[in-house]
Each structure stands twice: as structure tokens, then as C-alpha cells.
Computed example of a mutant assay.
Amino acid sequence: MKKTAYAVAFATLFVSGGAFAQMDELKIMAPAGPGGGWDQTARTIQSTLQAEDLVSNIQVENVPGAGGTIGLQQFVNRSSGDPSATIVGGYVMVGAIIANEAPVTLEDVTPIARLTGEYLAVVVPADSEIQDAQDLAEALRADPGAVTWAGGSAGGVDHIAVGMFAQAAGVDPELINYIPYSGGGEALAAILGNQVTAGISGYGEFAPQIEAGALRVIGITAPERQPYADAPTFVEQGLDVDVQNWRMIAGAPGISDEEREKLTGTIRTMAQSDTWKKELEARGWVNTYLDGEEFAAYLDRQVEQTSAILKELGISQ
């Protein structure tokens, strides 16, 4: 695979840290509706930067649709050369770009850092007859189309995880009845309203309803149990579903090396703060911080691997 432009850029001069001037302004685009993981990530960045006095003025904007690709295209078209413009994204966006054959890709922005990782949870309403992963697998084998799934955008990590569950249950992933939602709030309403059989998203998005007893966790997509979740894994229930969502922040295209380095220094300092670490713990997000050339190379690998997975699952051609 050809090395991308941003990987080449990061191979040049890059600061490793140290003192830097406070940024006057930061604009963060969350390319999804309110309530979802990207919105939560953007607003957690906002609150942490403010609490740590790293940026004077911070604004968050929501632009939902098509797995983040609508927001991504807007961001690229209007933010070129703007050192104060950023966008959050992640694994969902990688898949959506491929599945939707989006006109812009992550090569069109300036990746700054991978921030967090999060395992996914499959939940059902508390009064559902489905009690565990084997019950869900049996229902799927009996009638794949009758089992409806609420999750994030088509081709995203939620969709991929459902396809992996179907494969593990011995069902053709192309037969799954997956309903994509542009925001976590909409998907949650569908689950709580018994409009779908099950829902899938990051554990943190469901945590309040799980704790309140409105939702029951069927399983999480981790290789082993997690300290923040009193929930079984699919692996321990005999279904090989192991996938982690990750989220990042990127800058605008066309910014200088110095502007990129200043933004990276700000984000790195934020990620090292106690405020950020407490937020991660509270939300069940795993610290997977990575920046610089290593993050650029990681993105290259993720694009290549996700393209192969989507073809295997029949989500893209």
C-alpha cells in the first residue's frame, strides 16, 4: 500500500513535547448527532481543555450523517489551512468512508492523535426474552431478518461487530437486519422503545441505562472482562467477537508543521492530565493515546485492514 501523504509528513520534524503557548481558539467538529460517542469525545475534549486552561475559547459543532463522512467533507471543504479547526473521528469513519465510497478520506485531513479505545456492548431491553449471547445466536439462526439491530452508521465498527457475531453464530453476515442511526441518542430511543431486538454501541453510551436497570448487557466485544463493566464477554460465552472502537482527533488540511506541532502538544498535554484520566475512567474509555508518525502509520494499516474486513462481511464490494 502506498504510504499516505500524512505519514510522509509525520516522518519529518516533530516535537516530542515540552512547553508551548496556550491556544486562543479551538473549533471541534463532532460529525454525528448529540449523545453519541463522537459527540461525547468532542465535549470531553472541550471540558478537559477548559479545566486545564489549555485553550481560551472552544466551540463544538455537530454535523451528523453517513458515518461522519458528511461532516468530514464539510470540514475539508471549509477548514483548509485553519490551525484552530479540528474534527473527531475513529474506526467508524474509516469503515464509512470505504462503504459509502466517500469523496473525501482521512488522507485529506491532518491526523493528530488516537485518543481512546472502547469495547462495544450488545444490549437488549430489560424485559427482553433474550438472556445471553447463546439466546441471541439461536434467534439469529432461526430467522436472521427477524432479529433487528440498532447501531451506528453502515460500515462502521458497530456494523462490523454485528457481522462478526453473525459469523460466530454460523449465519451469513449479509442476512443481518442492521438499522444504522446517525446519533447514539436515536439508537438508544429505539432500543428502549422496543423498536429493535438489540442495540450495539460503546459501553459508556449505555452505562446509565444499564445501571438504572432499563437495559441488560448480552455481551461485550473484549477478549476478557473489563473492570468498568459487570458484564460477560462474547468470547467467554463461546462466540469469537473481539473488536475495539477507537477515536481520534485530526486537524485541518494544509496547516504548517509548526501549527500541527502546537496542536499536537496541546492535545498531548490534555491526554496526560488527571482531568482527562478521570474522564476516561468514568466513561469506561481505554487510554490508547498515540500520535506522530506512529499514529499516521497506524491509520494506514487500519484503512487497509478494514477494507478487507468489509469485503469479507459483504458490507462493501
Rank of each mutant, 00 (worst) to 15 (best):
G185S: 11
E211M: 12
E259D: 15
A252K: 11
R216H: 15
L192R: 15
G238D: 08
Y203R: 04
F234Y: 11
G292H: 03
E205A: 14
G292F: 02
P180Q: 09
E294K: 15
Q209M: 12
D274L: 03
E211A: 15
G254S: 07
I255F: 05
D242K: 14
E259H: 08
R301V: 15
A222K: 14
A190F: 11
E304L: 07
E236A: 04
P253I: 00
N177S: 15
A198H: 08
A189W: 05
V303T: 04
G193M: 05
A250M: 01
W276D: 06
D274Y: 01
E294I: 00
R247V: 03
K278L: 02
P227A: 07
R225C: 06
T233V: 09
L263Q: 09
E279W: 01
E205S: 13
A212E: 14
A229C: 13
L290T: 11
L290V: 01
S182M: 03
S256H: 12
A214M: 14
S201C: 05
A231V: 05
S256A: 12
I218W: 01
T264H: 13
I176C: 10
W285M: 10
P227M: 07
L215I: 13
I249V: 12
I191Q: 12
A297F: 00
D300N: 13
G199D: 09
I191G: 12
A250H: 03
N287L: 03
T269G: 01
R301I: 13
A297Y: 03
D230H: 08
G254Q: 05
W276K: 04
E281W: 00
A252P: 14
P232Y: 05
F234G: 04
D242G: 03
A250C: 02
E279A: 12
I179T: 09
K277I: 00
P173E: 06
A214G: 01
I218N: 02
F234S: 07
Y203N: 06
L215C: 10
Q226L: 08
T197Q: 01
